[in-house]
């Protein structure tokens, strides 16, 4: 469903990578590995259509993503290394707002349920600036609980999480793969994802 062909990336005047390609089908997970500065994040930004590739193309369901960008993005969920939450808002408000802005329907019950799952029960009404780094990350990850979009692109999702949360997140990703979803993620510490086919791509 997702295919990349002969991708090349130039940042500033450095050529980060060239001739990178892969194919990914439903139920498969792609681990993106490589040292710092190898272009992992740049590749992810190409996959979500923010960074135009220097050469090559990215196909979704057989068509270039830039020719169907709105349709493609309706099937895409991206989690960057910024949490994309507002410090002044509460976890509940953040969750509901990000769903609204992404054109999704999320009921308040579902949102509360998701926050409970990530272990933030009782903190729904506390402004996010009072939360710890790990808790903020969990607010961001709570988006994934009700997320039914086909392609997940996750940039270092396990950073700042404790052991229990890592296991929980691995379970969420497995569930997504079992439903036939696709996932691409970068990580420094490979985590066992119990379900789905795992592919690896090493940059640099």
């Amino acid at each position: 469903m997702l295919a990349a062909e002969q991708l090349a990336c130039v940042r500033g005047e450095r050529r980060l990578f060239a001739n990178v390609g892969f194919r990914l089908d439903g139920g498969e997970l792609l681990y993106l590995q490589g040292r710092n500065g190898a272009g992992k994040t740049s590749l992810l930004r190409m996959l979500i259509g923010l960074l135009p590739p220097e050469a090559g193309q990215i196909l979704w369901r057989g068509q270039d993503i830039h020719e169907q960008i709105d349709e493609y993005r309706a099937e895409l969920c991206y989690l960057g290394h910024h949490n994309a939450i507002k410090e002044e808002l509460t976890p509940l408000e953040n969750l509901l707002l990000s769903a609204r802005l992404a054109d999704e329907t999320l009921s308040e019950d579902d949102a509360l349920d998701a926050l409970e799952q990530v272990g933030l029960a009782g903190r729904e009404d506390l402004a996010c600036k009072y939360l710890s780094q790990g808790q903020k990350r969990r607010v961001a990850l709570a988006r994934l609980v009700k997320e039914r979009r086909a392609l997940w692109v996750l940039d270092e999702p396990f950073v700042a999480l404790d052991v229990a949360a890592v296991a929980w997140l691995a379970g969420i990703i497995s569930g997504h793969l079992q439903r036939g979803g696709l996932a691409v993620m970068t990580t420094h510490q490979p985590v066992d994802i119990p379900a789905g086919t795992v592919r690896e791509l090493r940059l640099g």
Binding site: G49, D70, G80, H81, N83, A84, E87, S98
Partner: peptide
Amino acid sequence: HRDGTLEQLALAPHPLGLA
């Protein structure tokens, strides 16, 4: 831009000009 919500707005399935 700093907290990453701008990226999410740009990735929403509607033109960024509306946002």
